Amino acid sequence: METDNSSSEYSGDDYYYTEVTPVSVKQDPSYDARDIARILSVVVYSLTCLLGILGNGLVIAIITFKMKKSINAIWFLNLAVADFLFSIFLPLNITYTAMNYHWVFGAAMCKLNSFLLNLNLYSSVLLLMTISLDRCVSVVLPVWAQNHRTTTLACLICVFDWMLGLAMSSPSLVFRDTTTHQGNVICFSNYSLSRNKSDHPLGMKRHQTVNIVRFLTGFLIPITIITVCYMIIVFKLKRNRLAKSKKPFKIIVAIIVTFFLCWTPYHVLHLLETKHDQVSHVVFMIGIPIATALATANSCMNPILYVFMGQDFKKFKVTVLSRLVNALSEDITHSTLTQRSFSKMSSMTEKETIVL
């Protein structure tokens, strides 16, 4: 059954403006640009899938079998699991895009595919926020962190982050749907939950709510918290000159910056999509496929950063495995801070004893 060609009915995640437009392909002046965007997306998806599975699989194996259980290892392991889980489902997106957005995997996989993209977003950003808060507490309250910062607590926090990520990704399981348009089966977000045009205003409100909430919880609020945490850390370290090694600090900052560079276009375009009638359709037709591909590319970036940010990167005789172990090893900042804090306390005690 042919559906309404109104682009607003299909506005949402992943290429809806690409597939649903009231202008025929031959009359659409942006057809060539859309085709280029589609091919570019396939290339990015393919590279991301290959590197994501190999890189994150290697990180998971190293942390599981080669490293002792530590808080740092727990954070990195959960990040790698989130990216690996998404990467193994990327062949669905590759096939969908290569077939000119023809979905052949059924409605259930359409829901699951989008759900995993959002789960990757939320779980990653929640874990990055957790890491930032952990670093901040370790620097500001090193003695308290020494007594309360345990691997058991870290595991419980990760479980909470995953549960929260699952809950925030659940709209994909409700609203994602498939329909036939111009001979193609498309996977889109049916916020109206029906084909009845009378339900369109309600669908638009749901669409706006989902996109705004995703922007706030998956981008604006986390980046604000993370930025404040690292401003506090930088101020504290510069004032006290505490950290002997900047390696872990640089790695975490690189991961966070890369995450937000990859996801910013995705969030901006989907936020603009809530006011799609005020923005040219060409922006969404070309922008959304590229922005989504860039967002997915983040799932393969962390293992690359671990290798390139490791202290031994310039020593080419050192293997990739050694560089990964070096990058994932427990940070020195926390232990240094704690030792100095205890030293200060001991020194103060000695002075008090002499005075008495």
Rank of each mutant, 00 (worst) to 15 (best):
N147K: 15
C158T: 12
G183K: 03
S189W: 02
F188G: 03
N184I: 01
A154Y: 07
F175H: 13
A154P: 08
F175L: 11
K205P: 00
M168S: 06
Y191V: 00
K205W: 01
D161W: 10
S170E: 04
D177H: 12
V159Y: 11
D161S: 13
T179C: 12
S172A: 15
D199F: 02
I157K: 10
R195T: 11
L193D: 03
K197L: 08
T179Y: 00
R206E: 00
R195K: 13
T152N: 14
L166A: 06
T178H: 08
M204A: 01
S194F: 03
R149P: 08
A154S: 14
W162Y: 12
C155N: 10
D161H: 07
Q182I: 00
G165E: 03
P201Q: 09
L156M: 11
F160Q: 06
S189V: 01
Q146T: 07
L193I: 03
R176C: 13
L202K: 05
T180F: 02
S172Q: 14
T150W: 13
H148G: 05
C187I: 05
K205Q: 06
C155V: 03
Q182C: 02
T180H: 03
S194Q: 05
D177I: 05
S192Y: 02
N184Y: 04
S169V: 02
M204I: 05
L153Y: 01
L164K: 08
Q146E: 15
P201F: 04
L153A: 13
L164C: 12
H148D: 09
T151E: 15
L193H: 03
Q146W: 13
H148K: 15
F160V: 14
V159P: 06
N184A: 06
L202W: 02
L156A: 10
I157Q: 08
S198I: 09
L166K: 02
S198Q: 15
C155A: 08
T178A: 10
C187Q: 09
S169H: 00
M163T: 07
L202D: 06
N190E: 06
M163K: 02
T152S: 14
V159D: 07
I157L: 13
G203I: 06
D199V: 00
H148M: 10
L156I: 07
T151A: 13
R195S: 11
C187H: 05
F188K: 03
S192I: 01
Q146Y: 14
G165Q: 04
H200G: 07
S172C: 13
C158F: 04
N196E: 14
Q146S: 15
N196K: 14
K205A: 06
M163D: 03
T151Y: 09
F175S: 11
N190F: 02
T178F: 08
L166I: 14
S169Y: 00
P171H: 11
H200Q: 14
L156P: 01
T152M: 14
L193G: 03
C155H: 07
D199R: 04
N196G: 07
T179H: 02
N184G: 02
F160S: 08
C187R: 04
R176T: 13
G183N: 00
V185S: 09
C187T: 05
N190T: 08
T151N: 14
G183W: 01
F175P: 11
L153S: 08
T180M: 04
F188R: 06
T178S: 12
F188C: 07
P201D: 12
D199C: 04
S172Y: 04
C158S: 09
I186Q: 01
T152I: 13
W162T: 09
R206S: 05
R195C: 06
C158K: 09
